[in-house]
Amino acid sequence: MSLSLSLTINGAARDIPLDDPRVTLLDLLRERLALPGTKKGCDRGQCGACTVLIDGHRVNACLTLAATLDGAKITTIEGLADGESLHPVQSAFIEHDGFQCGYCTPGQIMSAVGLIAEGQAGDDPERIREGMSGNICRCSAYHGITLAVQDATRRMATAEKDDAA
């Protein structure tokens, strides 16, 4: 099989030849596109470490066959910061110590960005906990993660209001 995919990855359009239909988005990013920030924790949709945004929605890259994605816009952890300036979720994770080893962190952060965009949790900690439960952190930094997502949600809401005003 030989297939060519057009993907927009972190804002850059790319044409990617694909010679194997088995390649998942996760392995495409990590092993073929030199974007190893997205992590493999279980490879089966059970841990969330591989979370990326596809067309703005958070998904598990490990269960997504790359071949299905022609035309998609992908955002990975490498594409979240605006140059030197961190995304509010990234800064909040540092401030609230929402990680220890850092391995699940790219997935946690992309999941949080997706969750905030979904707009269902708001700054309610219980809804944040539930909404972030697809991302396992074995170091168990959950307390800081919840605080970070809550804080980032508020900051982003304020920023939006300021923009509107």
Binding site: G48, V59, G114
Partner: peptide, 9 residues
């Protein structure tokens, strides 16, 4: 059911 990520897909 499942997680936010899985439900999106």
């Amino acid at each position: 059911g499942a997680s936010g990520q899985l439900r999106n897909v």
